[in-house]
Computed example of a mutant assay.
Amino acid sequence: MRKLFNVCLLLLLFSGTTIAQTTTGKTFTNPLMPSGADPWVIQKDGFYYYTNSTGGNIVIWKTKDITALSTSPKKAVWSPPAGMAYSRDLWAPELHFINGKWYVYFAADNGDNNNHRIYVIENSSADPTQGTWEFKGKIADSTDKWAIDASVFESKGSWYMIWSGWEGDHNGQQNIYIAKMKDALTIGSERVKVSSPTYTWETNGDLRDGDLTHVSVNEGPEILKHGNKQFLIYSASGCWTDFYALGMLTADKNSDLLNPASWKKSDQPVFKQSPENSVYAPGHNSFFKSPDGREDWIIYHANSNPNEGCGNKRSPRAQKFSWNKDGSPNFGVPVKDGQPLVKPSGTK
Protein backbone atom coordinates (compact mmCIF):
# COMPACT_ATOMS: atom_id res chain seq x y z
CA MET A 1 0.00 0.00 0.00
CA ARG A 2 2.85 2.38 0.95
CA LYS A 3 4.61 1.69 -2.36
CA LEU A 4 1.37 2.38 -4.23
CA PHE A 5 0.96 5.64 -2.31
CA ASN A 6 4.51 6.71 -3.17
CA VAL A 7 4.00 5.87 -6.85
CA CYS A 8 0.76 7.88 -6.92
CA LEU A 9 2.47 10.78 -5.18
CA LEU A 10 5.32 10.76 -7.70
CA LEU A 11 2.85 10.62 -10.57
CA LEU A 12 0.90 13.52 -9.10
CA LEU A 13 4.04 15.61 -8.61
CA PHE A 14 5.24 14.81 -12.11
CA SER A 15 1.83 15.58 -13.57
CA GLY A 16 1.69 18.87 -11.65
CA THR A 17 5.11 19.85 -12.94
CA THR A 18 4.08 19.03 -16.48
CA ILE A 19 0.88 21.05 -16.17
CA ALA A 20 2.76 24.01 -14.71
CA GLN A 21 5.33 23.87 -17.50
CA THR A 22 2.64 23.59 -20.16
CA THR A 23 0.71 26.52 -18.72
CA THR A 24 3.86 28.63 -18.50
CA GLY A 25 4.65 27.74 -22.10
CA LYS A 26 1.28 29.04 -23.20
CA THR A 27 1.57 32.50 -21.74
CA PHE A 28 3.07 35.71 -23.08
CA THR A 29 3.70 39.21 -21.87
CA ASN A 30 3.29 42.66 -23.37
CA PRO A 31 4.80 44.42 -25.16
CA LEU A 32 5.15 41.99 -28.07
CA MET A 33 8.17 43.88 -29.42
CA PRO A 34 10.19 46.82 -28.08
CA SER A 35 8.89 49.14 -30.80
CA GLY A 36 6.20 49.20 -33.48
CA ALA A 37 3.55 51.87 -33.98
CA ASP A 38 0.23 51.43 -35.80
CA PRO A 39 0.12 47.59 -35.60
CA TRP A 40 -1.97 45.74 -38.17
CA VAL A 41 -2.80 42.00 -38.29
CA ILE A 42 -4.62 39.88 -40.86
CA GLN A 43 -5.17 36.11 -40.82
CA LYS A 44 -5.10 33.81 -43.83
CA ASP A 45 -4.48 30.11 -44.41
CA GLY A 46 -3.43 29.45 -40.84
CA PHE A 47 -0.96 32.32 -40.60
CA TYR A 48 -0.96 35.78 -39.11
CA TYR A 49 0.55 38.51 -41.27
CA TYR A 50 1.59 41.55 -39.30
CA THR A 51 2.91 44.98 -40.25
CA ASN A 52 3.51 48.32 -38.55
CA SER A 53 4.92 51.75 -39.36
CA THR A 54 8.64 51.85 -40.09
CA GLY A 55 8.70 55.26 -41.75
CA GLY A 56 10.78 54.17 -44.74
CA ASN A 57 9.46 50.88 -46.14
CA ILE A 58 6.88 48.10 -45.87
CA VAL A 59 7.80 45.14 -43.66
CA ILE A 60 5.64 42.02 -43.15
CA TRP A 61 5.97 39.46 -40.36
CA LYS A 62 4.61 35.91 -40.88
CA THR A 63 3.75 33.73 -37.90
CA LYS A 64 1.33 31.16 -36.50
CA ASP A 65 1.73 32.70 -33.05
CA ILE A 66 0.97 36.43 -33.05
CA THR A 67 2.34 36.73 -29.52
CA ALA A 68 5.78 35.58 -30.75
CA LEU A 69 6.37 38.49 -33.11
CA SER A 70 9.79 39.29 -31.67
CA THR A 71 11.14 35.91 -32.87
CA SER A 72 9.01 35.53 -36.01
CA PRO A 73 10.49 35.89 -39.51
CA LYS A 74 9.99 39.23 -41.20
CA LYS A 75 10.69 40.59 -44.65
CA ALA A 76 11.01 44.07 -46.10
CA VAL A 77 8.78 43.63 -49.15
CA TRP A 78 8.80 47.11 -50.69
CA SER A 79 10.70 50.40 -50.49
CA PRO A 80 9.79 53.60 -52.34
CA PRO A 81 12.21 55.14 -54.81
CA ALA A 82 13.83 58.40 -53.75
CA GLY A 83 12.58 61.78 -54.85
CA MET A 84 8.92 60.87 -55.24
CA ALA A 85 5.76 62.29 -53.62
CA TYR A 86 5.54 59.04 -51.61
CA SER A 87 9.21 58.52 -50.70
CA ARG A 88 9.09 59.65 -47.09
CA ASP A 89 7.15 59.22 -43.83
CA LEU A 90 5.39 55.95 -44.65
CA TRP A 91 2.72 55.58 -41.96
CA ALA A 92 0.16 53.00 -40.87
CA PRO A 93 0.43 50.31 -43.56
CA GLU A 94 -2.48 47.88 -43.73
CA LEU A 95 -2.43 44.55 -45.53
CA HIS A 96 -5.68 43.33 -47.13
CA PHE A 97 -6.64 40.40 -49.35
CA ILE A 98 -9.23 41.43 -51.96
CA ASN A 99 -10.48 39.35 -54.89
CA GLY A 100 -7.47 37.06 -54.93
CA LYS A 101 -4.75 39.70 -54.55
CA TRP A 102 -2.90 41.33 -51.68
CA TYR A 103 -2.91 45.09 -51.18
CA VAL A 104 -1.04 47.34 -48.78
CA TYR A 105 -2.58 50.78 -48.19
CA PHE A 106 -0.26 53.31 -46.57
CA ALA A 107 0.20 57.04 -46.12
CA ALA A 108 3.32 58.77 -47.40
CA ASP A 109 4.68 62.17 -48.40
CA ASN A 110 7.80 63.85 -49.81
CA GLY A 111 9.08 64.92 -46.43
CA ASP A 112 6.42 67.62 -45.93
CA ASN A 113 3.51 66.42 -43.77
CA ASN A 114 1.14 68.75 -45.65
CA ASN A 115 1.52 66.43 -48.62
CA HIS A 116 0.52 63.18 -46.93
CA ARG A 117 -1.76 61.08 -49.13
CA ILE A 118 -2.82 57.41 -49.38
CA TYR A 119 -0.95 55.05 -51.72
CA VAL A 120 -1.33 51.37 -52.57
CA ILE A 121 0.84 48.47 -53.69
CA GLU A 122 -0.38 45.12 -55.08
CA ASN A 123 0.82 41.51 -55.04
CA SER A 124 -0.84 38.52 -56.75
CA SER A 125 1.15 35.89 -54.80
CA ALA A 126 -0.74 33.62 -52.40
CA ASP A 127 1.77 34.57 -49.71
CA PRO A 128 2.32 38.33 -49.25
CA THR A 129 5.92 37.76 -48.16
CA GLN A 130 6.61 36.16 -51.55
CA GLY A 131 6.17 37.32 -55.14
CA THR A 132 6.49 40.89 -56.35
CA TRP A 133 4.87 43.99 -54.91
CA GLU A 134 3.93 46.55 -57.57
CA PHE A 135 3.30 50.21 -56.86
CA LYS A 136 -0.19 51.11 -58.15
CA GLY A 137 -0.30 54.81 -57.28
CA LYS A 138 -2.28 57.19 -55.16
CA ILE A 139 -5.82 56.39 -54.09
CA ALA A 140 -7.96 59.43 -53.29
CA ASP A 141 -11.44 60.87 -53.49
CA SER A 142 -12.17 63.85 -55.75
CA THR A 143 -11.06 66.43 -53.15
CA ASP A 144 -7.57 64.91 -52.87
CA LYS A 145 -7.07 66.48 -49.44
CA TRP A 146 -4.51 65.47 -46.79
CA ALA A 147 -5.16 61.85 -45.81
CA ILE A 148 -3.60 59.17 -43.57
CA ASP A 149 -4.53 55.91 -41.82
CA ALA A 150 -6.57 54.24 -44.55
CA SER A 151 -8.43 51.01 -43.87
CA VAL A 152 -10.84 49.08 -46.08
CA PHE A 153 -13.70 46.72 -45.31
CA GLU A 154 -16.53 44.87 -47.02
CA SER A 155 -20.22 45.31 -46.20
CA LYS A 156 -23.18 43.76 -48.04
CA GLY A 157 -21.05 43.02 -51.11
CA SER A 158 -19.49 46.50 -51.36
CA TRP A 159 -16.06 47.66 -50.29
CA TYR A 160 -15.46 50.89 -48.38
CA MET A 161 -12.43 52.91 -47.41
CA ILE A 162 -12.20 54.86 -44.16
CA TRP A 163 -9.40 57.28 -43.28
CA SER A 164 -8.35 60.34 -41.32
CA GLY A 165 -8.20 63.63 -43.21
CA TRP A 166 -8.43 67.38 -43.26
CA GLU A 167 -11.50 69.26 -44.38
CA GLY A 168 -9.36 71.85 -46.15
CA ASP A 169 -5.70 72.48 -46.84
CA HIS A 170 -4.49 73.40 -43.35
CA ASN A 171 -3.96 71.40 -40.18
CA GLY A 172 -6.06 72.04 -37.11
CA GLN A 173 -8.51 69.15 -37.11
CA GLN A 174 -8.44 65.56 -38.30
CA ASN A 175 -11.79 63.97 -39.18
CA ILE A 176 -12.88 60.45 -40.10
CA TYR A 177 -14.12 60.03 -43.67
CA ILE A 178 -15.71 57.14 -45.54
CA ALA A 179 -16.19 56.46 -49.26
CA LYS A 180 -17.35 53.52 -51.34
CA MET A 181 -14.70 51.84 -53.47
CA LYS A 182 -15.11 51.09 -57.17
CA ASP A 183 -12.37 48.49 -56.88
CA ALA A 184 -9.33 47.84 -54.71
CA LEU A 185 -7.44 50.67 -56.40
CA THR A 186 -10.16 53.27 -56.90
CA ILE A 187 -12.50 55.38 -54.77
CA GLY A 188 -15.94 55.24 -56.33
CA SER A 189 -17.89 57.91 -54.41
CA GLU A 190 -17.49 61.28 -52.76
CA ARG A 191 -16.04 61.24 -49.28
CA VAL A 192 -18.44 61.60 -46.33
CA LYS A 193 -17.39 62.86 -42.91
CA VAL A 194 -18.70 60.56 -40.17
CA SER A 195 -16.75 61.88 -37.17
CA SER A 196 -15.08 65.07 -35.97
CA PRO A 197 -13.43 65.66 -32.60
CA THR A 198 -16.19 67.08 -30.41
CA TYR A 199 -15.65 65.76 -26.89
CA THR A 200 -12.96 67.04 -24.53
CA TRP A 201 -11.16 63.68 -24.55
CA GLU A 202 -10.78 63.99 -28.35
CA THR A 203 -9.10 67.40 -28.28
CA ASN A 204 -5.98 67.01 -26.16
CA GLY A 205 -2.75 68.22 -27.71
CA ASP A 206 -1.20 71.49 -28.84
CA LEU A 207 -0.33 71.69 -32.52
CA ARG A 208 3.39 71.16 -32.92
CA ASP A 209 4.11 72.17 -36.50
CA GLY A 210 1.71 74.90 -37.54
CA ASP A 211 0.47 78.38 -36.80
CA LEU A 212 -2.56 77.24 -34.82
CA THR A 213 -2.56 76.85 -31.06
CA HIS A 214 -4.60 73.67 -30.82
CA VAL A 215 -5.35 70.56 -32.85
CA SER A 216 -8.15 68.05 -32.49
CA VAL A 217 -7.65 64.51 -33.73
CA ASN A 218 -9.74 61.60 -34.95
CA GLU A 219 -7.53 59.05 -36.73
CA GLY A 220 -6.69 55.35 -37.12
CA PRO A 221 -10.23 54.14 -37.97
CA GLU A 222 -10.83 50.38 -37.89
CA ILE A 223 -14.01 48.37 -38.47
CA LEU A 224 -15.13 45.69 -36.01
CA LYS A 225 -18.20 43.61 -36.94
CA HIS A 226 -20.36 41.81 -34.41
CA GLY A 227 -23.94 40.58 -34.76
CA ASN A 228 -26.03 43.16 -36.56
CA LYS A 229 -23.68 46.03 -35.72
CA GLN A 230 -20.60 47.56 -37.28
CA PHE A 231 -18.31 49.43 -34.91
CA LEU A 232 -15.83 51.98 -36.13
CA ILE A 233 -13.07 52.18 -33.54
CA TYR A 234 -10.82 55.22 -33.91
CA SER A 235 -8.01 56.99 -32.06
CA ALA A 236 -8.58 60.42 -30.55
CA SER A 237 -6.43 63.31 -29.27
CA GLY A 238 -2.82 63.92 -30.23
CA CYS A 239 -0.63 60.82 -30.31
CA TRP A 240 2.06 62.94 -28.64
CA THR A 241 -0.09 63.17 -25.49
CA ASP A 242 -0.71 60.54 -22.83
CA PHE A 243 -4.44 61.05 -23.48
CA TYR A 244 -4.44 59.30 -26.85
CA ALA A 245 -7.40 56.90 -26.57
CA LEU A 246 -9.93 54.86 -28.54
CA GLY A 247 -13.40 56.14 -29.37
CA MET A 248 -16.28 54.30 -31.03
CA LEU A 249 -18.96 54.90 -33.66
CA THR A 250 -21.79 52.38 -34.08
CA ALA A 251 -23.91 51.66 -37.16
CA ASP A 252 -26.48 49.02 -38.00
CA LYS A 253 -25.07 46.64 -40.61
CA ASN A 254 -28.08 47.25 -42.86
CA SER A 255 -27.88 51.06 -42.67
CA ASP A 256 -26.54 53.40 -45.32
CA LEU A 257 -22.90 53.65 -44.28
CA LEU A 258 -22.43 56.77 -46.41
CA ASN A 259 -25.06 58.60 -44.37
CA PRO A 260 -23.42 60.31 -41.36
CA ALA A 261 -26.66 59.89 -39.42
CA SER A 262 -26.13 56.10 -39.50
CA TRP A 263 -23.13 56.43 -37.20
CA LYS A 264 -23.66 57.09 -33.49
CA LYS A 265 -20.67 58.23 -31.43
CA SER A 266 -20.09 57.03 -27.87
CA ASP A 267 -19.60 59.97 -25.51
CA GLN A 268 -16.74 58.33 -23.61
CA PRO A 269 -13.54 56.62 -24.76
CA VAL A 270 -13.76 52.84 -24.93
CA PHE A 271 -10.04 52.27 -24.21
CA LYS A 272 -7.68 54.74 -22.56
CA GLN A 273 -4.48 55.14 -20.57
CA SER A 274 -3.99 53.25 -17.32
CA PRO A 275 -1.47 55.08 -15.11
CA GLU A 276 -1.90 52.40 -12.44
CA ASN A 277 -0.68 49.83 -14.99
CA SER A 278 1.92 52.20 -16.49
CA VAL A 279 0.32 52.13 -19.95
CA TYR A 280 0.02 55.49 -21.69
CA ALA A 281 -1.46 56.69 -24.99
CA PRO A 282 -2.96 53.37 -26.12
CA GLY A 283 -4.35 53.53 -29.63
CA HIS A 284 -4.15 52.87 -33.37
CA ASN A 285 -5.30 49.30 -33.11
CA SER A 286 -6.51 46.39 -35.18
CA PHE A 287 -8.40 43.19 -34.34
CA PHE A 288 -7.86 39.48 -34.81
CA LYS A 289 -9.33 36.11 -33.85
CA SER A 290 -7.53 33.39 -31.92
CA PRO A 291 -6.24 30.52 -34.12
CA ASP A 292 -9.30 28.42 -33.25
CA GLY A 293 -11.66 31.33 -33.93
CA ARG A 294 -13.14 31.28 -30.42
CA GLU A 295 -11.65 34.47 -28.99
CA ASP A 296 -11.55 38.12 -30.00
CA TRP A 297 -8.33 40.09 -29.54
CA ILE A 298 -7.21 43.68 -29.90
CA ILE A 299 -3.67 44.67 -30.83
CA TYR A 300 -2.61 48.26 -30.22
CA HIS A 301 0.43 50.41 -29.54
CA ALA A 302 1.16 52.25 -26.30
CA ASN A 303 3.96 53.76 -24.23
CA SER A 304 5.26 52.36 -20.94
CA ASN A 305 5.99 55.76 -19.42
CA PRO A 306 4.33 59.18 -19.47
CA ASN A 307 5.40 61.87 -21.94
CA GLU A 308 7.03 59.45 -24.41
CA GLY A 309 5.08 60.89 -27.34
CA CYS A 310 4.82 59.58 -30.90
CA GLY A 311 8.33 58.19 -31.30
CA ASN A 312 9.81 54.71 -31.44
CA LYS A 313 8.99 53.95 -27.81
CA ARG A 314 5.46 53.05 -28.86
CA SER A 315 5.25 49.26 -28.73
CA PRO A 316 2.65 46.72 -29.91
CA ARG A 317 0.55 44.96 -27.27
CA ALA A 318 -2.29 42.42 -27.46
CA GLN A 319 -5.08 41.39 -25.13
CA LYS A 320 -8.34 39.48 -25.30
CA PHE A 321 -11.61 41.39 -25.14
CA SER A 322 -15.23 40.49 -24.51
CA TRP A 323 -18.69 41.72 -25.51
CA ASN A 324 -21.25 43.67 -23.49
CA LYS A 325 -24.88 42.59 -23.25
CA ASP A 326 -25.84 45.21 -25.83
CA GLY A 327 -23.42 43.65 -28.32
CA SER A 328 -20.76 46.35 -28.05
CA PRO A 329 -17.09 45.49 -27.42
CA ASN A 330 -15.61 45.64 -23.93
CA PHE A 331 -11.87 46.20 -24.27
CA GLY A 332 -11.26 46.49 -20.54
CA VAL A 333 -8.12 48.19 -19.23
CA PRO A 334 -4.67 48.04 -20.86
CA VAL A 335 -2.67 45.36 -19.06
CA LYS A 336 0.70 46.25 -17.57
CA ASP A 337 4.04 45.28 -19.04
CA GLY A 338 5.27 41.86 -17.98
CA GLN A 339 1.91 40.56 -16.76
CA PRO A 340 1.55 36.92 -17.90
CA LEU A 341 -1.42 36.44 -20.24
CA VAL A 342 -2.73 33.19 -21.65
CA LYS A 343 -2.00 32.96 -25.37
CA PRO A 344 -4.89 33.07 -27.84
CA SER A 345 -6.79 29.78 -27.76
CA GLY A 346 -5.58 27.26 -30.32
CA THR A 347 -2.05 28.69 -30.44
CA LYS A 348 0.49 25.91 -31.05
Rank of each mutant, 00 (worst) to 15 (best):
E219T: 02
Y244C: 06
A108L: 01
I121W: 12
N218P: 05
E276F: 13
S196C: 04
E202S: 00
F288W: 14
P39A: 11
K265V: 01
T143E: 11
P282Q: 05
T129I: 11
D38R: 10
F287H: 13
Y199V: 02
I139G: 06
A126Q: 15
P275G: 12
T17Y: 13
R294F: 10
T63G: 04
L207H: 13
P334A: 03
Q173A: 03
K74N: 14
V194E: 06
N324L: 03
K193A: 05
Q21S: 15
K313P: 05
W61Y: 15
K272G: 00
T22Q: 12
N277L: 06
G172W: 13
P269R: 02
L246I: 01
G205F: 11
F47P: 00
K74I: 10
P34N: 14
V77R: 09
S87D: 04
K182R: 05
F321I: 04
N30D: 10
Q174F: 05
N305F: 15
Y48H: 04
W61F: 15
G56L: 08
I187W: 06
L212G: 03
D292C: 06
W102E: 04
G327K: 12
L11C: 15
W323D: 05
N6T: 04
Q319F: 00
L185V: 05
Q319V: 01
T54C: 07
V59D: 12
S196A: 11
T200V: 02
D45Q: 13
H301W: 07
R191T: 00
G332Y: 06
N123W: 15
G55F: 10
K289Y: 14
A150D: 07
N285V: 01
D296P: 03
F271E: 02
K74T: 11
T17V: 12
K225H: 11
P269K: 03
G131A: 15
D141Q: 13
G309P: 02
